[in-house]
Design a binder for these strands. Structure first.
Lengths: 246, 246
DNA sequence: CGGGCGCTTGATGTACGTCAAGACGTGTGG
DNA sequence: CCACACGTCTTGACGTACATCAAGCGCCCG
């Protein structure tokens, strides 16, 4: 339960901020959460919280994946982020959740009451700095998402997405996709057909291998395949070392 | 100089976080910056800092506008955010700037050395909470940008952009656009021609008025014109009261 | 082995990108 | 103050990539 090291981006701290804002070893967060957390199993497409719900709980993905999204009237759904094993979410920036959170596949979470985590005894500077690190990571992720959506070609967006997934998972070349084609489409701002066709095209051109629909093998110089890749690394400036649970 | 109240989103604080994380009256930030800041005038397209530069300065827009962006190899540019009068930027989440900052038009800024702002005397909890508020605002903006880019039709993106601009400016119906069509295109993930055509179409259909290219009048139920608007307000959950300088 | 869901593939329309030219407005110099 | 020139914005013609509508395949689970 919360027994992993948090995704560490702490190798890139703003040197100027005092300790309370410096991430430091984010394992302090797990430590503070250790006794507060309880496990929670969700089956596919189950909602964890809805947009507008009070932000009262902090979650960590153990196994599976979570999507946060919004809906437009005719049922059009837009996915803002995926959370993979090791990721925290729910420490929102408002009193009310700005997105709906659902699991994309059978998923195990750890849950802790924010009120409990932030009790006077628990709310150390270390905990606060860990929260700060999470917020920065969230901002970085969102900015990278916007950059991804700036690509005009479906293949570029898909490749950027696959690179993000690869960077956030352990293996360099083997990617597990714990979400449906529709989920990917709603994250990339495309239709499911275009996503599927792009997967096929990338496979046919030898850029990726796809033994099963939700397993992708990265082949050769994939980055060079992005027609207009950024001079600076577009998706994840520094690969995020992410300790996966179980 | 930094004499305005910061954009207040503090009406939506996570009630659970201790004071250090609660925005509180962000005027504390201006107060802390008051003596540290110096004015800086930039002419159109001038760079303020480049991607990769050390994050050492905090800026506030007094007049004009700033864009932060990245470049892809063939000169394709992608704009992540605009900063308007009253907005702070430069308090980045890393030691190095993740974007290049340039002014879109003749612009006046206030500049303060982060090291000075964050000296032991200045780094009060109030200052830190103000920084936290800025970071949350940045996250919200980035998420809204990603949502905007999720719209599949150019007119929808443009309308969402205009709504964002309207919400961030004083007047409800009269929008000043302190950036070129190319800037708007690079922010919306479109070409300049498509942006121009969308402006024309919206004008012809009576949704907006455009006395001059950079002045837009919002007419009638503009929101209803977005073909797939979000059930919940897409761009700015609560209009941001933004005190403009001079 | 059968059913259903997720994924893929096909055919067609349309919105946007691209290339190109022209109009407008703005700023500068005479 | 006017004329000119440059840059910004707009408009046009055309090609292309993606959305849409529709059908079919394949995998997984019951």
């Amino acid at each position: 339960m919360f027994s992993q090291t948090v995704p560490r981006t702490s190798d890139a701290q703003p040197a100027h901020y005092p300790e309370v804002m410096n991430g430091g070893p984010a394992s302090t967060l797990e430590h503070a959460l250790q006794s507060a957390a309880r496990p929670m199993a969700c089956s596919r497409d189950e909602a964890i919280f809805l947009e507008g719900d009070p932000c009262s709980r902090l979650f960590r993905v153990v196994e599976g994946a979570v999507r946060i999204c919004r809906f437009r009237h005719e049922g059009i759904r837009q996915i803002e982020a995926f959370y993979l094993p090791g990721d925290y979410f729910g420490f929102d920036i408002d009193t009310e959740a700005r997105f709906t959170a659902e699991v994309t596949t059978n998923t195990t979470l750890m849950v802790a009451e924010l009120a409990w985590v932030l009790t006077p005894t628990a709310r150390s500077q270390a905990v606060m700095s860990a929260i700060w690190t999470l917020a920065r990571e969230e901002l970085r992720r969102s900015q990278n998402h916007a950059l991804l959506l700036g690509y005009r070609h479906a293949q570029d967006r898909l490749l950027a997405f696959l690179e993000e997934m690869a960077a956030r998972q352990h293996c360099v070349s083997c990617i597990d996709l714990p979400m449906s084609r529709q989920d990917i489409a709603d994250y990339l701002g495309l239709t499911i057909e275009t996503v599927s066709r792009s997967f096929t095209d990338l496979t046919r051109s030898g850029v990726i291998g796809m033994p099963r629909p939700r397993t992708v093998i990265m082949k050769k110089a994939m980055r060079a395949r992005i027609s207009n890749s950024f001079d600076t690394i577009p998706v994840s400036p520094r690969p995020i070392p992410m300790t996966q649970s179980n």
